[in-house]
């Protein structure tokens, strides 16, 4: 097994993984809470809306 040859291709591959990993980490840590809050808000609104519809239907 020629490790120099293998690492020649593993090295750039891991660099792309590292970039993607850092970006996913930043998204999760710094932006996901805001996205989640948005989703919760939407869900809440749609829940209220369906409640209203139900009441209206009755």
């Amino acid at each position: 097994m020629n490790w120099a040859a293998i690492f020649s291709f593993l090295h750039p591959m891991f660099s792309v993984f590292a970039a993607s990993g850092i970006v996913l980490y930043i998204l999760k840590k710094e932006y996901a809470p805001f996205i989640q809050a948005d989703l919760d808000e939407k869900q809440q609104k749609s829940g209220e809306h369906s409640d209203d519809s139900y009441k209206g239907g009755a």
Binding site: N2, A5, I6, S8, F9, L10, P12, M13, V16, F17, A19, S20, G21, V23, L24, L27
Partner: peptide, 20 residues
């Protein structure tokens, strides 16, 4: 981020198998 990792895996995986 997910797409680039998949592309990198396929691209460099190919050269690991075919060259390294």
């Amino acid at each position: 981020a997910i797409f680039s990792s998949i592309i990198a895996f396929i691209f460099f995986g190919y050269f690991i198998i075919e060259v390294a």
